[in-house]
Simulated assay, not measured.
Amino acid sequence: MGVAIRTAKEGDRELVVRLLDQAFQDDPVSSWVFPGEEYRRSTHHRLMAEFTDIVLADGYVDLTEDGTACALWLPTPADDDGDPDAAGDEAVRIREAVDPANERVELIARLTAEIHPVGRAHEYLWMIGVAPERQGEGLGSALMSAVLDRCDQEGLPAYLEASNDRSRVLYERLGFSFTGLPLRLPDGPTMWPMWREPRQL
């Protein structure tokens, strides 16, 4: 049986934020950005809200019809040159909006911007989240496959950063390859930038 997927609307914002907050509470990168369980539970949702707002404004959010999984996609044009000044300003804005005293909020935004590929149009999977009780059922794969099929039809690459080994294995099954340059967070976990060339139909 297929998974029903729709594009999230502004009215779905709180659902998406809540879903991402639940899905990433125990993620290694989220645990690094917000160390300490109590601190993370009280603050993490603000970063998920900021990410959701950015993608709702400039990209799109795919949502399973039952509201248990979502994927945040940001189409990146070929002329996006990764301007470091603009990326730095955005990183500062995110920190001030989310948790002004937490330098790691700004740092994660800066570091991921620095490694983001430039010069070629692509779909950027910013985040994908599945409700904890539904993980392992193939919802993430279904969400991604819908977009990756379109990428194949349009000859468009895709890019993401895997934040843990489990997701990295999933992305490899879907055709992504590690770029060879890991992002090692200071005193924290490693992220794996991954790129997928469109498949020949």
Results as ranks from 00 to 15, higher is better:
residue 2 G to M: 14
residue 4 A to K: 08
residue 7 T to S: 14
residue 7 T to C: 09
residue 8 A to N: 05
residue 10 E to Q: 14
residue 12 D to P: 06
residue 12 D to C: 07
residue 12 D to A: 06
residue 12 D to T: 06
residue 12 D to V: 06
residue 14 E to M: 07
residue 15 L to M: 09
residue 16 V to H: 03
residue 16 V to R: 02
residue 16 V to G: 05
residue 17 V to Y: 07
residue 18 R to T: 13
residue 19 L to F: 05
residue 20 L to W: 02
residue 20 L to Y: 12
residue 22 Q to G: 09
residue 22 Q to S: 14
residue 22 Q to I: 00
residue 28 P to N: 11
residue 31 S to T: 14
residue 32 W to R: 12
residue 34 F to C: 09
residue 38 E to M: 01
residue 39 Y to F: 12
residue 40 R to Q: 03
residue 40 R to M: 00
residue 40 R to N: 07
residue 43 T to Y: 03
residue 44 H to Q: 15
residue 44 H to I: 00
residue 47 L to S: 07
residue 47 L to I: 12
residue 48 M to W: 04
residue 49 A to L: 07
residue 50 E to Y: 15
residue 51 F to S: 13
residue 54 I to E: 14
residue 55 V to W: 03
residue 55 V to S: 08
residue 58 D to S: 15
residue 58 D to I: 00
residue 58 D to L: 13
residue 60 Y to L: 13
residue 62 D to I: 00
residue 62 D to G: 01
residue 64 T to W: 02
residue 65 E to F: 02
residue 65 E to K: 09
residue 65 E to L: 10
residue 67 G to A: 06
residue 69 A to W: 03
residue 70 C to M: 05
residue 70 C to I: 05
residue 71 A to S: 11
residue 72 L to W: 02
residue 73 W to Y: 10
residue 73 W to F: 08
residue 76 T to F: 11
residue 77 P to M: 05
residue 77 P to W: 04
residue 79 D to Q: 13
residue 80 D to W: 13
residue 81 D to P: 00
residue 82 G to D: 10
residue 83 D to Y: 05
residue 84 P to K: 08
residue 85 D to S: 13
residue 85 D to G: 05
residue 85 D to R: 15
residue 87 A to G: 05
residue 87 A to T: 02
residue 92 V to G: 00
residue 92 V to M: 11
residue 95 R to N: 03
residue 97 A to G: 08
residue 98 V to R: 04
residue 99 D to E: 10
residue 99 D to H: 11
residue 102 N to H: 08
residue 103 E to R: 12
residue 109 A to L: 06
residue 111 L to R: 15
residue 111 L to Y: 04
residue 112 T to C: 12
residue 112 T to W: 05
residue 119 G to H: 11
residue 122 H to T: 13
residue 123 E to H: 14
residue 125 L to E: 04
residue 126 W to Y: 13
residue 127 M to V: 11
residue 128 I to W: 01
residue 130 V to A: 02
residue 130 V to C: 04
residue 131 A to N: 02
residue 131 A to V: 02
residue 133 E to L: 01
residue 135 Q to N: 08
residue 138 G to L: 03
residue 138 G to Q: 03
residue 140 G to R: 01
residue 141 S to H: 07
residue 143 L to N: 01
residue 145 S to C: 10
residue 145 S to H: 11
residue 145 S to V: 02
residue 147 V to L: 03
residue 148 L to R: 12
residue 149 D to F: 00
residue 149 D to G: 06
residue 150 R to K: 15
residue 151 C to F: 05
residue 152 D to R: 09
residue 153 Q to S: 14
residue 155 G to A: 11
residue 156 L to F: 04
residue 161 E to I: 03
residue 161 E to F: 05
residue 164 N to G: 13
residue 164 N to I: 07
residue 167 S to G: 15
residue 167 S to W: 02
residue 172 E to S: 12
residue 173 R to D: 11
residue 176 F to R: 05
residue 177 S to N: 12
residue 182 P to M: 02
residue 183 L to S: 07
residue 183 L to H: 08
residue 184 R to H: 14
residue 185 L to V: 08
residue 186 P to R: 07
residue 186 P to E: 09
residue 186 P to G: 09
residue 186 P to Y: 06
residue 187 D to L: 11
residue 188 G to Q: 09
residue 188 G to M: 10
residue 192 W to C: 12
residue 194 M to L: 12
residue 195 W to D: 03
residue 196 R to P: 14
residue 196 R to D: 08
residue 198 P to T: 04
residue 199 R to L: 13
